[in-house]
């Protein structure tokens, strides 16, 4: 962290984000310090992405090539046999479908319910509001590891073991989502809502026509985070589902990887790729929104 050079005086046509680099800036940005710093970051980047790249590359190698020493960087004998085994022999299409159904239902339900209760908590003065808010905040930090045993007893007595309902319902009441939505809805100007009410719009109409469109970015952020959480969720699906046709992807992979397929790396890496790749694609497409969402959550 050296002294920041004064901003150049003669750059009027600067790009939106950064001022055009002055000559000193440019020298700094390509000087030995910068070289060293970017080199270090590059090493970090390789360490960060290397395992994922290696996963994809290895998943299209035949089992023999996977076990070769020294390992081949680029697959010599590209094959999809691991994937065909996964999808033909191992019922992965069903697991994939289960994961999609559960993640979509959890996302839509949790976002909608969080937005509704968040709106009431932020913008309507009603009896019980403070108590409800405190109760929700008190459970914000209660982790799934604490509740899964009684939850299992409850779900078993509701006869919901091995159902989508068991995988979905407990995640529709997400305290973090309420916290996030309330936080954002506090920023909606009261005048806007009052204007709608004066125009004769009922509370529900106001909510769907005025409030929801105003909170678009927050809804998107919460939706993405909820989807990610559900897609990667493991402990509860592992407990709540016992018949193989109801497995979600992580449960199926974890059980296969610790069962009789424990050293069939080709198969397991293909399974890992099937779980990770869709999420990575979603992430790359929406990365700006996801990273900004995370950053603002941390700041708030």
């Amino acid at each position: 962290m050296t002294t920041t050079p004064l901003p150049p005086a003669t750059t009027s046509a600067a790009p939106a984000e950064l001022p055009a680099p002055s000559r000193g800036d440019r020298r700094r940005r390509f000087g030995p310090r910068a070289l060293l710093l970017n080199g270090a970051l590059l090493v970090g980047l390789v360490a960060s992405l290397g395992p994922l790249v290696w996963m994809v590359l290895s998943s299209v190698k035949p089992e023999g090539e996977i076990r070769q020493f020294p390992p081949t960087l680029v697959p010599q004998d590209v094959t999809l046999e691991n994937y065909t085994a996964l999808f033909d022999r191992m019922n992965f299409p069903q697991f994939f479908l289960n994961s999609v159904i559960v993640a979509l239902a959890v996302t839509v339900g949790a976002v909608l319910f969080s937005a509704m209760v968040g709106y009431a908590l932020a913008k309507i003065d009603f009896p019980g509001r403070k108590a409800l808010f405190l109760l929700i905040m008190a459970t914000l930090m209660v982790p799934g590891t604490i509740t899964f045993v009684p939850l299992f007893v409850l779900v078993a007595n509701l006869d919901l073991i091995n159902t989508y309902a068991a995988l979905i319902l407990p995640f529709l009441a997400a305290p973090f989502g309420v916290f996030l939505m309330r936080q954002f809805m506090l920023d909606i100007p009261d005048e806007l809502l009052d204007a709608a009410r004066v125009d004769g719009a009922g509370e529900f109409r106001t909510f769907f026509r005025i409030v929801l469109p105003q909170t678009g970015p927050a809804l998107a952020t919460l939706g993405i985070l909820t989807f990610l959480g559900s897609w990667n969720n493991f402990l509860w699906p592992l407990v709540a589902v016992q018949s193989a046709d109801m497995y979600t992807l992580p449960v199926a992979l974890a059980l296969y990887s610790t069962g009789q397929n424990t050293v069939q790396y080709g198969l397991l890496l293909a399974g890992a790729t099937v779980i990770v790749t869709p999420i990575l694609v979603v992430f790359l497409v929406l990365q700006r929104r996801i990273i900004q969402g995370i950053a603002t959550t941390g700041i708030k």
Binding site: S48, P51, W231, N232, P250, S257, I275, I279, Q287
Partner: peptide, 12 residues
């Protein structure tokens, strides 16, 4: 650097 965060722990 953020990419690993979105991955499933089981998978990685």
């Amino acid at each position: 650097f953020y990419a690993p965060v979105v991955t499933s722990i089981v998978a990685v």
